[in-house]
Design a protein around this nucleic acid. Structure first.
Length: 294
DNA sequence: CACTTGACCTGTCCGC
DNA sequence: TGCGGACAGGTCAAGT
């Protein structure tokens, strides 16, 4: 489930692997994955050179020399994997989690003039690629509404606390997952940051002190930075632009660790459901209302 | 308006 | 071994 650190890791890889390459051909297996991959649109793709790869929240922005941008959302199971030209045989890198490409979950194939490929794989078809004029990207509904980047130097803990007041009657977990409050946080890092701040996910925003919210911000930045350093979290499907896994999951304190010991106090971590999501907490470090364990 | 729930998909896992 | 159902979780539409 790509969140900010995973998308940032893909961005870094793509920046190194595809900037400067020229597109020769684009195909899509289903309009759902690339709604505007029509012949009319391909004139802005074919012959265009990749000029930059950017990220905003969980969205990847692949800028082209044609003045257009391939906007990509990986949602839960999306992967963007680059494969260089293969001079012989049909082999694939042995250190890749992804096998021969394309495979049955390949939705979009971008072929470059040098014979290399970028594959958009997405098992569950929730993700998508869309082409927009670069100048219109900031006007996309999601881009207009999405909150500040949590790792932006200009985004302060007090500004973070202030933005949470927009959702004062909801749970901390729901507020963290709300992309209009702060960008890029998903289920993994919401649970990890709440454990770090010793706050229960069902706690209402209005019941938190500004000190607690500032501590939560510090913990959120910590887990996001650590995960970027570890190349993201490979829980199920996520891989980077080379098809390789990320290792943050090995450093996670509560996420996917139900039944194991809390690394801070030794209590047994439990899994509950909060804001419609599987939620991992330490019942001792994060005191709050008792919830029925799943 | 504020907030919550369901839909979108497919593969995996668990219990019978 | 097969089969039904729960579950995974990002975002938006629909519902309360």
């Amino acid at each position: 489930m790509p969140e900010l650190p995973e998308v940032e890791t893909v961005r870094t890889g793509l920046e190194r692997l595809i900037v400067g390459r020229t597109i020769a051909h684009v195909s899509s297996d289903t309009p759902k994955s690339f709604p505007n991959a029509s012949a009319e649109v391909s004139q802005f793709l074919v012959g265009a050179q990749v000029s930059d790869v950017r990220r905003r929240a969980k969205v990847l922005l692949i800028d082209l020399s044609s003045g257009h941008t391939l906007v990509t959302h990986l949602k839960m199971t999306g992967q963007l994997v680059y494969r260089g030209e293969q001079s012989f045989g049909a082999g694939h890198p042995t250190d890749s989690l992804v096998g021969e490409l394309p495979d049955k979950s390949t939705r979009v194939i971008i072929e470059f003039v040098d014979g290399s490929h970028l594959y958009f794989n997405d098992q569950r078809k929730f993700g998508w690629m869309k082409l927009y004029p670069t100048l219109e990207v900031p006007n996309i509904d999601f881009m207009r509404r999405v909150g500040p980047e949590p790792l932006d130097d200009n985004f302060t803990a007090s500004a973070f606390a202030e933005r949470f007041q927009r959702r004062k009657n909801t749970s901390l977990k729901a507020a963290l997952l709300d992309q209009t409050v702060v960008a890029g946080v998903g289920n993994i890092y919401a649970d990890e940051a709440l454990w770090g701040a010793k706050i229960h996910p069902t706690c209402l925003v209005k019941n938190l002190s500004s000190t607690q919210l500032e501590l939560l911000f510090a913990e959120l930045q910590f887990v996001l930075r650590l995960s970027i350093e570890k190349g993201g979290s490979t829980d199920r499907n996520y891989v980077n632009a080379e098809g390789k896994r990320g290792s943050y999951i090995d450093f996670a304190r509560v996420f996917r660790r139900e039944g194991q010991a809390c690394p801070r106090c030794g209590s047994t971590i439990i899994k509950t459901r909060v804001a419609g999501r599987g939620t991992h907490t330490c019942p001792v470090c994060q005191p709050g209302q008792q919830l029925k364990a799943l």
